Amino acid sequence: MISNQKISEETVLAQAKGNIVSDMGGEKVMLSVNRGKYYNLGEIGGEIWDLMSKPISVKHLVDHLTLIFDVEHKECEEQVIEFVENLAKEGLIVVAN
């Protein structure tokens, strides 16, 4: 878990093990087997989740999202960092080494 670490554009993240993810009406929903909780990642959160199937930097996440969605780089970066910080607090992602 990375809840005590500061996440920046250089941080490399990946999905943590122990989650079951499914598509439901264009959005991703997840069951954390370890926590016994359900999460709705939404459309964009699902895109981020898919990109983290292999280790990826926050910078690459932001670069990818700004290509496919109509969003300014700075706003996207802020929102992505906030989103992945929430995933980190829930133990759903890890810092890749």
Score class of each variant (00 low, 15 high):
11 T>A: 14
80 V>Y: 03
95 V>T: 11
22 S>Q: 11
93 I>E: 04
69 F>L: 09
73 H>G: 03
40 N>R: 13
77 E>W: 06
30 M>T: 04
77 E>P: 01
36 G>W: 01
23 D>N: 13
30 M>L: 13
34 N>I: 00
65 L>E: 08
20 I>L: 15
20 I>F: 08
95 V>K: 15
62 V>E: 03
71 V>Y: 07
22 S>V: 05
49 W>Q: 06
73 H>R: 11
47 E>I: 04
68 I>D: 12
68 I>T: 11
18 G>T: 03
7 I>A: 08
91 G>L: 04
96 A>W: 01
26 G>Y: 07
93 I>G: 06
46 G>R: 14
34 N>V: 01
58 V>K: 13
62 V>Q: 06
97 N>S: 09
89 K>E: 14
59 K>M: 02
29 V>K: 15
74 K>L: 00
30 M>H: 02
61 L>M: 05
19 N>W: 00
19 N>R: 13
92 L>T: 05
92 L>W: 07
36 G>A: 12
94 V>F: 08
23 D>A: 09
5 Q>I: 01
73 H>V: 02
12 V>S: 11
48 I>Y: 06
41 L>P: 01
12 V>T: 06
48 I>S: 08
59 K>W: 00
77 E>F: 08
63 D>L: 07
59 K>L: 02
11 T>H: 12
63 D>S: 10
25 G>P: 04
97 N>E: 09
95 V>F: 14
93 I>H: 06
94 V>A: 13
78 E>D: 07
50 D>Y: 12
13 L>K: 03
27 E>S: 11
13 L>N: 06
20 I>K: 15
95 V>Q: 14
84 V>A: 14
37 K>I: 00
29 V>H: 15
75 E>N: 14
39 Y>F: 15
97 N>V: 00
92 L>P: 01
80 V>H: 03
25 G>A: 12
3 S>I: 02
76 C>Q: 09
2 I>L: 15
38 Y>A: 11
55 P>V: 01
24 M>W: 13
23 D>C: 04
35 R>L: 05
28 K>F: 02
43 E>W: 00
95 V>I: 13
48 I>M: 12
22 S>I: 02
89 K>V: 09
54 K>Q: 14
52 M>G: 06
86 N>L: 13
6 K>N: 09
85 E>G: 02
13 L>E: 04
54 K>C: 06
10 E>R: 11
30 M>G: 08
97 N>I: 00
